[in-house]
Simulated scan of single mutants.
Amino acid sequence: MVAAAGLIAAPSSGVDYSAEQARHGKPSIASEQFGTLADGTEVDIYTLRNSLGMEVTVLTYGGILQSIEVPDRRGRLDNVTLGFDNLDDYVELNDPYFGAIIGRYGNRIADGRFTLDGVEYQLATNNEPNHLHGGDVGFDKRVWEVTDTFRDRGSVGLELSYTSPDSEEGYPGTLDTTVTYTLTNKNEIVMDYEATTDAPTVVNLTNHAYFNLSGEGSGSIEGHKLHLDAGHYTPVDETLIPTGEIASVEGTPFDFRRPTEIGARIRDDHEQLLFGQGYDHNFVLDRDGGGLELAAELSDRHSGRTLSVYTTEPGIQFYSGNFLDGTLVGTGGKTYRQGDGLALETQHFPDSPNQPDFPSTVLRPGETYDTTTIYQFSPAKRGR
């Protein structure tokens, strides 16, 4: 696990961090009951607050990032992630996976099948004809145990754990998983993922937060500018399964190597955009090594907010909220329509168990799955 404190330099925003910390006090954490499931299981909500006033709420149901309150250029706080204000909606309506931990396998597996060590495994096909985000009852629908909370002068956080039994959703092996959320005084949400298994299996964990830097429920994200440190992506077929090709973004609507408005090319006549009804693709990050590296920057000129995504993962799924259809009402009482939020899911590649040329997602006994992703919020850079 990568240590949280001091990972990324504080943004050069002109903020006097010492003065701000004195104004807001020490980081804090509090919890209360959020609701009760039909079987009587209680679900809690944890509120993390740093010394700058940034606030993050986390549900034990699905490990969901329920809200992320960050300042704009004038210091005004607003929630920048999509979600619901009640448990029933998360249980009954969260097909978009708002804010949830995704597992055992984030993204799609073709036909819900893969072969490992000569044995074929059949998973749920909950996204016909494919397997998506862990199946019918994935990690996003499990109640996680809070196994630790912590707080010091520079950060506050909680550790969530879940044990997935052998054959759950068709996956082999008992998987012990821990996800740690840390909110730092640099306005970072640090997400550390760890997992071990007692039998060979496949694992690909991520978080499915949707962002709108103008504020949740404020409208389209097509005016946001996105930079992806990725010269290649993995094209898909009409069911959104990778073809196996690792294609250059050069000369395509998928070239975000320079900051580009999301809406600039989203309606181009390009087969891949037609398949996804917009962007719903894995980008191959231009990595220099195995540590934390910048994967993406998202900026909004209206609010002055920037989101920087750092990760140890080899890929990132950019999903432009294509299937939001106006039927869901979010935390602020507004309906979510197509493109009202976007996801930047750090990950290994989709369908890797069936793609020998993709980075492996196999985890074996004695090994530890260990990845880290950071969402860092700061004022937008000049010119963005």
Rank of each mutant, 00 (worst) to 15 (best):
A3P: 12
A3G: 02
A10T: 11
P11G: 09
S13C: 00
S13E: 06
G14W: 01
Y17C: 04
E20R: 10
K26G: 10
K26Y: 08
S31F: 12
D44M: 15
I45M: 03
T47M: 13
E55M: 11
L59M: 09
Q66N: 13
D72H: 04
D72F: 05
D78Q: 07
V80C: 08
N86D: 10
P96G: 07
R113W: 06
F114S: 09
L116W: 09
D117P: 01
L123Y: 08
P129A: 03
G134H: 14
S155Y: 04
E169S: 14
E169M: 13
P172C: 07
G173N: 09
E188A: 04
I189L: 15
V190G: 04
T197G: 10
A199M: 04
A199Y: 02
A199E: 02
T201M: 02
S218N: 12
E222F: 12
H224N: 07
L228F: 05
Y233F: 15
E238G: 11
T239W: 09
T239D: 12
L240F: 07
A247L: 07
V249Q: 05
D255Q: 10
D286N: 15
E293T: 01
R301D: 11
G304I: 07
S308T: 02
T311V: 06
P314N: 01
P314W: 14
G315Q: 06
G321Q: 03
T327A: 10
G333R: 04
E345G: 05
Q347F: 14
F358Y: 15
P359S: 06
G366A: 06
E367N: 09
T368E: 02
D370P: 01
I374P: 00
